[in-house]
Structures are given as structure tokens and as C-alpha cells.
């Protein structure tokens, strides 16, 4: 902070008050209208017939199965994608190899392909009409319209999140600290856990949270692959749709509210971590 900023009432980078308030106002209205209002609506609709009615709908076996399914899927897909995301980012940023840009494009593929298409690809690859799918079904290992298919679809759709978050951070940091650790005699694993991982931990955490949010919320790919069998392959998002189509609006919105709360919980967790480690963050971000 320069001395000028202290002596002048208004910093030189600031705009006239009218412009400032207008800009802030527009931003707030936008956030309220497009982010906050829908969220409130979901909770309002869920509680339209009171707490008890909402909680009753959560006792429905179909709703419970869907919640279990979604949590299980996230618990499997997120760690796998975190591990592979780190591996991909590590390989891309710390080593030179041919076809590197091709690999980077490949990581982005799930972002550019529509989730429905992703689901369809899995159906075509592993469905009953393909050779591979026929063999798998004959050997009692069905993938499409079954649990493995949902996991695969979720893995595909959520793959880029972790890698995309940490690649820029790792590129910015370069290889110098890893090389320094090497010259100090550290082994590869030690370098990874004690130098690389601490340097990317915030980006990694953010990537994992985004990955988790998407894994729990994914609709398109899962809807195609799962076949939406109630109590068996229905996840929370697909169950919300089914309840809604059956005019069970309280059930649909209650389940939607639970999904929203899971997302809010992860965001809360992130803020809590950032707040607790504020001093370390401040110390390491400068430089």
C-alpha cells in the first residue's frame, strides 16, 4: 500500500460513487435473482406442507435408496478422480513428453461433450447390443442399467475438475522446488508429499469440492446409463425428476433441498478451512 492511498480519501483506482453503487447494485441484484431466489424457492416448496410432511417423504424407501446411491457414488468417484487428477496434472506439468497437448485436450473432453452423449457412449460401449456388453451380461457383470455404469458415467463427467484446478497452480510453481528437494536427497514420494502436495493443497481442495458437487448433482449421463430403476439405480437427481413427474412436488423439492444442503455443506467446509488456516494462507500466497 503506497502512502498516497492513505493521504487521499479516495484511492486513485476508485470510480465516482454513483458508478460504484450502480456496479455493486447490479451485481447484488443479479446474485439475488439468479442464485439466491431459486435456492429459497426450493426450500420454500419443500416445506410448503410443513416440516413433518417433508420429513415423511424422506422416509420413502425410494428416496432413501436414492440418497444412499448418490452418497456411495460420490464416495467412490471423488477419491478416484482426485488421485487420477493429481497424477495427470503431475505428469503434464513436471515432465516433458510427446503428445502432451493431446493429453491436455483429452482431459477437457468431458467438459465439451454433453453429459447425455457421454451416457450414450457408455451404453453403446457396454450395452446389451455390443459384443463387450453382451459378454459382460452373459458373465453376470452388467454395467449399463447397473451400479458400475453409474460410477463410470460419474467418473467420466467429473474427471476434469481436479486436474483443471491444479494444473495452472503447478505450472505457475514450476519445477524449482521439486529440483531443490531432489538435490537435498529426497525420494520421489517424499517430494510429492512434502513439497508438491502442500503447494497445491488449496487448489486440490477446491477441485475436490467442485468434483464432489458435480458427482452428487450429475443428471444427464447418469439418467441415460442408469435406466432410472427406482430403489436400484436411481440417484438423487434422477429421483427428483421422477417424483416431480409424478406430481409429488413436496417429495421432489425435499429431495432437491437435501441435495442443495449437501452442496452448501461442502462450501461451508471450505470456508471453515480457509478461515482456520488464514494465517498460513496469507504467509504463503505472497511471494
Amino acid at each position: 500500500m503506497s502512502e498516497i492511498a492513505y493521504t487521499r480519501a479516495v484511492p486513485v483506482t476508485s470510480e465516482p460513487p454513483l458508478v460504484r453503487y450502480l456496479a455493486i447494485g447490479v451485481a447484488l441484484v443479479f446474485v439475488a435473482l439468479f442464485l439466491f431466489a431459486p435456492l429459497v424457492t426450493v426450500f420454500a416448496e419443500a416445506l410448503k406442507q410443513g416440516w413433518l410432511a417433508s420429513i415423511d417423504t424422506l422416509r420413502l424407501p425410494d428416496a432413501q435408496a436414492a440418497i444412499r446411491m448418490t452418497l456411495t457414488i460420490a464416495a467412490i468417484a471423488v477419491p478416484i478422480n482426485a488421485a487420477f487428477g493429481i497424477a495427470a496434472a503431475w505428469a503434464i506439468t513436471k515432465f516433458d513428453f510427446p503428445a502432451k497437448s493431446f493429453v491436455m485436450t483429452l482431459i477437457d473432453l468431458p467438459f465439451s461433450v454433453s453429459p447425455v452423449v457421454a451416457g450414450l457412449m457408455l451404453v453403446l460401449l457396454f450395452g446389451a447390443n455390443s459384443t463387450l456388453g453382451g459378454w459382460l451380461i452373459a458373465n453376470d457383470m452388467p454395467i449399463v442399467f447397473a451400479f458400475p455404469g453409474i460410477v463410470l458415467a460419474t467418473l467420466f463427467v467429473t474427471f476434469p475438475f481436479v486436474a483443471r484446478e491444479i494444473i495452472p497452480v503447478m505450472i505457475e510453481q514450476g519445477r524449482a522446488e521439486e529440483e531443490a528437494a531432489l538435490t537435498l536427497g529426497a525420494s520421489g514420494w517424499r517430494i510429492f508429499f512434502i513439497v508438491t502436495l502442500p503447494n497445491i493443497r488449496w487448489a486440490l481442495l477446491y477441485g475436490i469440492l467442485l468434483c464432489n458437487a458435480r458427482a452428487m448433482g450429475e443428471f444427464g449421463a447418469v439418467a441415460v446409463v442408469s435406466g432410472k430403476i427406482r430403489g436400484q439405480t436411481a440417484t438423487m437427481p434422477t429421483m427428483v425428476e421422477m417424483f416431480y413427474n409424478e406430481y409429488l412436488s413436496v417429495a421432489a423439492f425435499t429431495l432437491a433441498a437435501v441435495l442443495a444442503m449437501l452442496a452448501l455443506l461442502t462450501l461451508l467446509l471450505k470456508s471453515l478451512l480457509e478461515w482456520r488456516h488464514a494465517d498460513v494462507l496469507a504467509a504463503t500466497r505472497r511471494h
Binding site: 522446488e177 529440483e179 531443490a180 502442500p198 503447494n199 504463503t284
Partner: peptide
């Protein structure tokens, strides 16, 4: 000793 020192920031 590296050019920009490469100290471990954390």
C-alpha cells in the same frame, strides 16, 4: 542454490 532460491514456501 537455485537462481530464485526455490525455498519451500509452506
Amino acid at each position: 542454490v537455485f537462481q530464485s532460491y526455490a525455498l519451500f514456501k509452506h
